[in-house]
Design a protein around this nucleic acid. Structure first.
Length: 299
DNA sequence: TCCCAGGATCAAG
DNA sequence: CTTGATCATGGG
């Protein structure tokens, strides 16, 4: 496990965790009980422990057990990374060159499907910095607040009911999410009216779930794949954004352009059930090396 | 001032 | 099945 790389890899499922030096903090409601927890990795990537400090207002023993399960899920601690590395360790597999630096990088999965979908919509044609800021505003204005013994008042991610009753214009003016306000409200209303059952999507096959997601306003192939991978846990989903498009073109297509849909299909075919992880490693690698990023044009 | 950001949508070729 | 313009918003 590489906690630092995992938390800082700008994955799309929920707003980024708080960070102080090498301690990472998040808040989650576990079976109705709000919990604030801080994580600190001790030891190396291969021989590690994760120290957890948590604050909850009630039922400490039960919360401790729930939190353990929660962290195993969110940090994908049971995914078998070794077999991933082994399966694609061939010398002429470009992905293998990312393993040494990113060893221990794991998928961060969301725990709330609605939150995952909304955050994915917010991320379209947006920077990680900006959509995270927008998500925080969304929480501050429309989420319920929680007070812990120490620290400032915290806000949970809003429930669909709180967003469904807003006008897109009101939502936009408070959160600066721009034109994304309209689909955010529309999707929230579908959820409230029970015309969109996010839990049921997780039970379908990848293709069918994708087909249904593409009917939603504001949801295209990339947003759908983000939701499917980070939210619903479809490990064969490989979201293709500008970074993935660039690096796959560079590493696998010899610079020849291919559409994003073909790029996504290529990833699913080549990496199968590991396509999501391949995407994660290529994404992180591309951003850290800034591969293919257009250099600033100077007249 | 311009281009860009974990794109979606629509029209037109 | 492709490409191009448009859509808010703020960082660099």
């Amino acid at each position: 496990m590489n906690l630092r790389e995992t938390v800082l890899s700008a994955q799309t499922s929920e707003p980024e965790w708080g960070r102080e030096n090498s301690t990472f903090t998040d808040i989650e409601t576990l079976d109705g009980v709000p919990v604030k927890y801080s994580l600190n990795q001790q030891g190396g990537t291969d021989d590690f422990t994760i120290a957890v400090k948590a604050v909850a207002s009630e039922q400490p023993e039960r919360v401790a057990e729930l939190l353990k399960q929660h962290l195993n899920h969110v940090l994908s601690l049971t995914d078998d990374l070794e077999s991933f590395y082994l399966k694609f360790s061939d010398k002429n597999e470009p992905l293998a060159s990312t393993f040494s630096k990113l060893r221990g990088l794991r998928l961060m999965r969301g725990t709330n499907l609605y939150e995952s979908l909304i955050c994915s919509i917010l991320s379209q044609n947006n920077s990680a910095l900006l959509w995270n800021r927008t998500a925080r505003l969304l929480m501050k204005y429309y989420g319920s607040c929680v007070n812990f013994p120490e620290g400032p008042t915290q806000f949970l991610f809003p429930k669909p009911e709180a967003i469904a009753r807003l006008s897109p214009r009101e939502l936009r003016s408070n959160t600066s999410m721009g034109y994304r306000a309209k689909p955010v409200v529309q999707v929230s209303r579908l959820v409230v009216k029970n015309e969109l059952k996010l839990e049921d999507l997780s039970k379908l096959r990848y293709d069918k779930a994708m087909e249904l997601l593409l009917e939603l306003p504001g949801v295209g192939p990339k947003v759908a794949d983000c939701f499917l991978l980070y939210g619903a846990g479809f490990l064969e989903a490989a979201p293709v954004d500008v970074w993935i498009h660039r690096i796959v073109t560079h590493l696998y297509f010899k610079g020849r352009k291919a559409s994003r849909l073909k790029t996504a299909m290529f990833l699913r075919k080549r990496f199968g059930e590991w396509a999501g992880y391949a995407q994660l490693y290529l994404f992180d690698f591309a951003r850290r090396e800034a591969i293919g990023k257009p250099s600033k044009k100077r007249k």
